[in-house]
Write a protein that binds this DNA or RNA. Structure first.
Lengths: 200, 200
DNA sequence: CTGTTTATTGTCCCATTGGTCAATTCTTGA
DNA sequence: TCAAGAATTGACCAATGGGACAATAAACAG
């Protein structure tokens, strides 16, 4: 196994520090100085490893996403049936050590900047695309293509919404509640797909 | 009808300007100067009517919420049956002139500050509480209390999630799609309530 | 008409911030 | 051992932002 170059280590430390500061301070309060302090370094070092503030936080978003993504992928690897794959995605998105208010706060701050940062937008798009395709890998075979698409959209929205709720009112949604909620949604949709929806 | 005092007019102009700036610039880029410029006034006037920046944006959030709330209330007034009340809430939350990316962007920026602003948190809580109670006014009578609570949580989360999607990828969700999605959710949950959910 | 309150502006101030840079220390390969 | 390159720091800078304030203009009450 190849040893890590010092630069890579620093970069990782710094983007983690950036994310940590984001959790506490939000995008407006997340300054280079604070990030440096949190990493136990000087401001200069931050700009030595990242061209500018934007780039730093773009990497912070990638980092955070990778963590969440790994949780899902790990579960996905052990899933055999479509239902198991579905559950893997759902449960992975609410893993105990991830489904926490601070993480959500940081994520929210980054999402709020998406409209003004092309790179962030691209990252966001990739993230969402992967979540969607993970879901579809389970939903195919359980229902028609059109319904699968529709349900996948619903599930992603529901998951995002539950995360948001956690961030806005910590404690109002438990991990178990969230999982039950999403699973309930999926099973209800799958069971009722042949019935038309309510009124216009 | 009593004439409005000048102060009230100014205050309204300013908090609307604040919201408009928020749409474009996000919380980090929304400066007093820009708000003043957008309202065609000087920075001084902003701090004449609002104690500080925080207070200004708190009022901006109240303002924006009132608009969205009115849309729902107007529809709610014409609803007679529980189903109609439910649809009123759902459709009101995706009204054509409201379900727009810029509005969502501003909303996101404000939500991202909730964890660091007690007042914003309170406002958010009230908003969510009202949405929930509006939903429950429809759901009661259609299902048990426990299920109503559960479905109400799901609906609010789903609505939030769809808004988020709109903000992060404008054009990826249409108003009609969103409405269909939420209505489909409700009807599926109501139809399948006697059936247990999928695996653990 | 006049004194008082209210609205509004522009200026000033100080703290902060992102970013640059030269100087210094640390690594490391030859 | 030593020179070249990388890492790291701290000083510095220009720009900006929030907020205070005094001065002026407008509205208004008596």
């Amino acid at each position: 196994m190849k040893l890590k170059r010092l630069g890579d280590i620093r970069r990782k430390e710094l983007r983690q520090a950036a994310f940590a500061v984001l959790e506490r301070e939000g995008i407006a309060g997340a300054t280079l100085e604070k990030v440096a302090a949190h990493a136990g370094a000087s401001k200069g070092i931050v700009l030595h490893y990242f061209r500018n503030k934007q780039e730093l936080f773009e990497h912070a978003m990638r980092e955070a996403n990778a963590v969440l993504c790994n949780a899902v992928v790990a579960r996905l690897r052990q899933a055999r049936t479509p239902i198991e794959r579905l559950d893997a995605v759902i449960e992975g998105n609410f893993e105990e050590h991830l489904f926490l208010p601070p993480l959500c706060h940081a994520w929210l701050s980054l999402c709020a900047e998406v409209p003004r940062d092309e790179k962030l937008a691209r990252i966001q798009k990739v993230i969402h695309g992967r979540m969607r395709s993970n879901l579809l890998s389970g939903l195919r075979g359980l229902t028609s293509v059109a319904d699968a698409d529709d349900i996948a959209l619903g599930v992603t929205a529901l998951i995002d919404g539950l995360w948001l709720r956690l961030g806005l009112q910590p404690g109002s949604v438990s991990r178990e509640q969230a999982i039950r909620q999403v699973k309930g949604y999926v099973s209800a949709r799958l069971a009722g797909q042949e019935r038309p929806a309510t009124g216009a």
